[in-house]
Amino acid sequence: MPRSAIDDATGAVPVASAPKRRRAGGNSRPRRRSRFETVLPYLLVAPLAAFIIGLALVPAGFTIVQSFFKVNPLDPPTRFTGFGNFTKLFNNDAVVGAFSNTAYYVVVGVALSTVLGIMFAMVLRRPFRGRSLLIAVLILPWALPGVVEGILWTGMFDTNNGLINSVMSTLHLMNGNAVLLGQNRLLTITLIELVQVWQITPLSALLILAALQVVPDELYEAAEIDGCGAWAAFWRITLPLARPGIAIAMVQATIATLNVFDQPYVLNGAATTGASVTEQTYFISFQNLDFGQGYALSLLITVVTLLISLVVVRVVYRRVDL
């Protein structure tokens, strides 16, 4: 095997056959790396690594350890409780109810944002007049803080002066005084989640759109020549090739919906009809100051998020080589 090939492939030269250092050219072999060049990649990565370790891994480790302790400044000292925090959480009706609400948020939110994301991505895939403007408008809900969206939609859902009731009344679909939030649990959760879907769908659409941008047109042309219709092309070309983007979109939707806080809190307060697990984490940690249980609940949310994300990635993700 020629030497250059070995060098190219490994970036290193075997010690036994290493050429002696020469003063000047006349040799095409790459020069030895200086110490600085060897260290440089590590130096460049170091800030990011320190950032991740300091702000993610260390707090995560801290959270895991503290979740097995009673940490409550109102009830000192901090002491080991084993799985005590977890058993208390599972015996807490508000937490159990919040898990059930959150499960619904995840199912509806992930499914709807993915389907809508695919639809928007399909529409935006081809160039057309005003496409850039449409993308900019599409991004807006994603760019708005959840609290602002909550306040905005509070006005829309308002029983007395809200737009939804007004439209429904105009269309003779309802009497115009329907209580949309807070009365019926299923309706409340659905409407709250629709507001979140409105927020997270733009990112899903952009992620899927990015995946679709690399699909060559020749594939569709070849498929068309082979008699493939639009629907079949979508199922057999578009969807399989968009799977990496769809998987990432679904994972981000899973994280967002499992951690939903702003929308239920602003739209429905602390009512059990819509409270999410992150709301309960907030109440337990910062209202009750029971940080041990707060850590435990955060850890549970983390584990659930990881498991669901793992399933989504395993089922949906496929590597695409074009």
Partner: peptide, 14 residues
């Protein structure tokens, strides 16, 4: 991807 998710989620800890 999963490690990234872990980092994102764990990033909320105190």
């Amino acid at each position: 991807v999963v490690a990234g998710v872990a980092a994102l989620v764990a990033g909320t800890a105190a």
